[in-house]
Simulated assay, not measured.
Amino acid sequence: MALALCLAAPAAASAITVYAAASLREAFPEMAPAQTYNFSGSNELALQIERGAPADVFASAAPEEAQELFQKGLCSRPVTFATNVVVMLVPNGNPGHLKSVYSLRQGGHTIAVGIPGVPIGGYTRELLARMRLSSILTNNTVTLEKNVTGITAKVALGAVEAGFAYVTDGRIVSDRVEIIRLPRWAQPPVRYQACIVHRAGADTAGAQKFMEVLTGKRGRTALKKGGFGLPPKA
């Protein structure tokens, strides 16, 4: 009697866990849908990783968080994979009648801004300082948000008259908000960096493959589609 030879099917690659800035919530799942994602403020995610969170890859909206983890030996050398620009968002119909960011100088408006510790909060304050408009954060009623998702939600719902976020976030809710561009000369250098997390039990091989996709054609295509800028190819 012939014996049937049973060949075990190769095991499917398990998903890695990616901790990423909230502004990447659309681009990353499109680029690599099989992974497990945790999207939030970059500073909050970095703190969780320092405390032992089960992340395999960390993607930050600013270099500082990733570089700090690297200096502490908690991740590989960070790689810049995308850029962005800061814009002002207003609800559809522009209820505050804001023609530009300068309209906020008169005060009396409601605006949503990132908290100082999160990248979008830092970028916003740097941009306003360059434009000598820091006073709008005291002349108006300001709602502080932990990440860009909170900012765009407040604007899209009409809970505030304006909010400062990335242009990519404005595109995500473009059916409910209007994007007011800010001067190029005042833009801070918004750079996204990613690294492989060093921890016991990390899927280093899977993380490396993710990084290759992120910096390769598929990743660059997804990021460009989402409105991100791209650094020169290595």
Rank of each mutant, 00 (worst) to 15 (best):
H109S: 08
V85I: 12
C75K: 02
S100W: 06
N92R: 15
F81K: 01
R105I: 09
V90S: 08
T83A: 12
G117A: 11
L98F: 05
V113D: 00
P116E: 01
G96Y: 08
G107P: 00
V86R: 01
V79G: 03
P95F: 03
Q106K: 15
C75P: 00
T80E: 14
Q106C: 06
H97K: 15
S100G: 09
R77C: 02
C75E: 12
V79L: 14
V118Y: 00
N92A: 10
G114K: 00
H109T: 02
M88P: 13
V118W: 00
T83V: 09
G114W: 00
H109W: 06
H109M: 12
T80I: 15
Q106D: 10
V118L: 01
V101G: 09
G108N: 05
H97A: 14
P91I: 04
L104D: 03
V79K: 05
H109R: 09
G96F: 06
H97S: 12
H97F: 06
V113L: 11
G96V: 06
L104F: 06
C75M: 14
M88N: 11
G107S: 06
R77A: 14
M88K: 04
G93P: 07
A112F: 03
Y102R: 10
R77K: 14
L98K: 12
G117M: 08
P116T: 07
M88T: 13
S76P: 02
N84R: 03
T83D: 05
